[in-house]
């Protein structure tokens, strides 16, 4: 499942993608040459709720953490662990990604 090309994902940026067959968006965060994928589901409530306050607005002000705009939970970008807020100690669900040789970012085939 292709999500985007690295050129559409500037370093430091974050985007949410709708994916057929998934009930939530997939969040992709780019940090240098690495991309991190997470389901857009804050674990504060059972089943999870989407986190952005507007389209693609998934990070806190300094861009250091993924932030849920419902109740202020902060998650580490690389581990998905909640370090502040209602779901302290819980974590986001990882979506394994791969960067292909042509620069496209895709969900790894084992990631579904």
């Amino acid at each position: 499942m292709l999500l985007c090309h690295l050129d559409e994902l500037p370093d430091g940026s974050t985007r949410g993608f709708k994916v057929a067959g998934l009930r939530c968006k997939v969040i992709v965060v780019r940090r240098g040459d690495r991309v991190y994928g997470w389901r857009d589901l804050c674990p504060h409530y059972a089943g999870g709720t989407p986190m952005a306050w507007k389209r693609d607005a998934y990070l806190n002000g300094e861009g250091t953490h993924i932030a849920c705009a419902a109740h202020g939970a902060w998650f580490e970008i690389d581990t998905g662990v909640c370090v502040q807020g209602p779901c302290l100690g819980k974590r986001l669900t990882r979506v394994p990604l791969e960067i292909r040789s042509d620069g496209t970012v895709a969900m790894a085939t084992s990631g579904r």
Binding site: W53, A69, H71
Partner: peptide
């Protein structure tokens, strides 16, 4: 309710 950058709804 709308999510917000105030960290609350």
């Amino acid at each position: 309710y709308f999510k917000s950058p105030l960290g609350c709804n």
